[in-house]
Design a protein around this nucleic acid. Structure first.
Length: 535
RNA sequence: CGGGGAGUAGCGCAGUCCGGUAGCGCAUUCGCUUUGGGAGCGAAGGGUCGCAGGUUCAAAUCCUGUCUCCCCGACCA
């Protein structure tokens, strides 16, 4: 007896394209779907693409990509994540490039402790206010066993409670106070790679987690000019890193007072635009003035014999960059990685039927692997026998490997191979001769194309408006919007409440800015500022 | 922290309304056939149904509490 099944509308093209299901009836697109209960309800072809399309649900897509690319998992504790090997390898590559850039600009690495005495947090008034609401506090030092379980031992209460660092300015400036006496001790240019904890209400993998990994640079200078220069220098280090390594174009500028880092005089930032039209603050560099020097009483004796407060900066980028990377390049098939950061730049998938073919294919592949590795290109040979080539293709695409090489008996015979680009999904058959050079060029071109595509997208989504009406309409379409603003927090707040858009940055002008009138109040505006809805 | 949704095998889900001792697909193990876009057939293994209480002869299912995730708000990198 033959049963008739009905295919769910969204899946009909998938199933119909497969020979096995050719004869199955389909429901017209506007009819309700029936399939539950049939043998095919959970068929692998329907489950095959586990990644939600971006157009259907962007945040679900993001979560699917993180999961399918095996970047991170949720941990049992709310808001914290397990960074899996794929995700951590990415972070290590970012870290390596940034670390070199910091060293090239004269910085040294050091490590300051995780725990900060509670009293330190109260020393800088603005700083306290900014971070007080999101600090984890250690109050006890012991547990005790209680019938099979454990509970906090009330007798182990700490005399001075400890704060798990949300950032390290306080503990670092306490130390700098001991290190600095003379102008000869300056500047101090230190960076640290660390984890920090901020007790967030709402979290998202990589973009906002309670614990995250980052680097924080903390520098001390004799003069204001030097500190401001340092702040800006590191901002451009971040911009260079974002654009050259991540292939993620960014805009630079200064934050408004309401968006400024707690305790800073000026906060500089790099802002990127994600595919869904929302902005992401990808890195910050703060000019701290003498705020922390005063709070921790850090003075130096200058050449003129005077005792003066030290000038400070701090700057940081975090694992949030991984979130930015995902939302800049990835597509409905999964992660797309820029070659300069990809843990594996090339994956080789052998195709064969018989053992002789397997051997011939692997023998053919080995010199290619050697040649690529000699050029410093990272290659993975996926010779696992328990997965089909098609499965591997899909999996490596989900994981974002920039280039895939497929080698089968046909290629061995014809002395060529098939190369597929992850960014464009284009496949081509290329000759074996000069393959390493060809791949090196392809990787460079993928890196450049990813940046150009992202730049084009950002430029297309960046407009200027001249009235609040126009602003309200345009902001609905996402993207960056330049508009005049009267410079008051009140107007900024009104715009935020009415449109959910915030001022992402005030540009740093090399030449004189063009004045105008605020789109809300009509009052004088020194220059246009950049608005967007943001993460 | 407020409103909404969810948690059942490694993964994705059905079963919950109406209580009767757990099922499907993928994955895993074995065998044979396969391998250029997520292979096929046959057999096998795997789950204290998020956790803790309660109601009941009987709980994945009903009740209470709690944890975690997702979405929307308030807060922030």
């Amino acid at each position: 007896m033959r049963k008739t099944y009905f295919i769910l509308t969204p899946y009909r093209s998938i199933l119909q394209s497969h020979k096995k299901f050719k004869k199955i009836s389909t429901v017209p697109p506007d009819q309700p779907c029936i399939l539950a209960g049939s043998k095919f309800a959970n068929h692998s072809l329907l489950m095959a693409n586990k990644i939600t399309d971006r157009k259907d649900d962007y945040s679900q897509w993001y979560l699917d990509v993180v999961k399918e690319a095996k970047l991170a998992d949720h941990s049992p504790v709310r808001g914290s994540m397990i960074i899996r090997p794929n995700g951590f390898a990415l972070w290590e590559n970012m870290k390596q490039a940034l670390d070199q850039m910091f060293k090239d600009t004269g910085h040294e690495n050091a490590y300051f402790p995780l725990f900060i005495p509670k009293s330190f947090l109260s020393k800088e008034a603005q700083h306290v206010e900014g971070f007080a609401k999101e600090c984890a506090v250690v109050t006890h030092s012991r547990l005790k066993s209680v019938d099979g379980g454990v509970e906090v031992d009330p007798e182990s209460r700490l005399d001075e409670e400890l704060i798990v660092r949300p950032t390290s300015e306080t503990i670092i400036w306490d130390a700098y106070g001991k290190w600095i006496q003379s102008y000869r001790d300056l500047p101090i240019l230190i960076n640290q790679w660390a984890n920090v904890v901020r007790w967030e209400m709402r979290t998202r993998l990589f973009l906002r987690t309670m614990e995250f990994l980052w680097q924080e640079g903390h520098t001390a200078h004799a003069t204001e000019e030097e500190a401001v220069e340092e702040t800006r220098k590191m901002l451009y280090v971040y911009k260079t890193f974002a654009e050259e390594y991540m292939a993620m174009p960014v805009l630079t500028g200064v934050k408004t007072e309401s968006e400024r880092f707690a305790g800073a005089v000026d906060t500089y930032c790099i802002e990127a635009l994600m595919q869904d039209g929302k902005a992401l603050q990808a890195g910050t560099s703060h000019f701290l003035g003498q705020n922390f020097a005063k709070a921790f009483d850090v003075k130096f004796q200058d050449q003129d014999g005077e005792h003066k407060y030290v000038w400070a900066t701090s700057w940081g980028v975090s694992t949030r960059l991984i979130g930015g990377l995902i939302m800049t390049h990835s597509d409905d098939n999964g992660l797309v990685l820029p070659p300069k950061l990809a843990p594996n730049q090339v994956v080789i998938v052998p195709i064969y039927r018989k053992d002789e073919q397997r051997e011939a294919v692997l023998n053919y592949a080995q010199p290619i692997i050697d040649e690529l590795r000699d050029k410093g290109i990272s290659v993975k040979l996926d010779d696992r026998d328990n997965f089909k080539p098609g499965w591997k293709f899909a999996q490596h695409e989900a994981e974002g490997v920039p280039l895939r090489i497929a080698i089968g008996p046909r290629d061995v015979e014809n002395q060529n191979l098939e190369i597929a680009r992850r960014d464009t999904l284009e496949k081509s058959i290329v000759p074996l001769g000069g393959i390493a050079d060809h791949i090196e060029e392809l990787l460079e071109s993928i890196q450049a194309d990813l940046f150009n595509a992202a730049k084009q997208r950002m430029d297309d989504a960046t407009r200027t408006v001249n009235s609040y009406e126009e602003f309200k309409e345009e902001i609905e379409n996402g993207g960056f919007i330049w508009a005049h603003w009267d410079g008051t927090a009140k107007t900024e707040e009104k715009i935020k409440e009415e449109t959910k858009a915030t001022i992402r940055l005030i540009p740093i002008h090399e030449d004189d800015p063009v004045p105008g009138e605020c789109i809300v109040t009509g009052k004088p505006s020194k220059q246009k500022v950049l608005f967007a809805r943001s993460y």
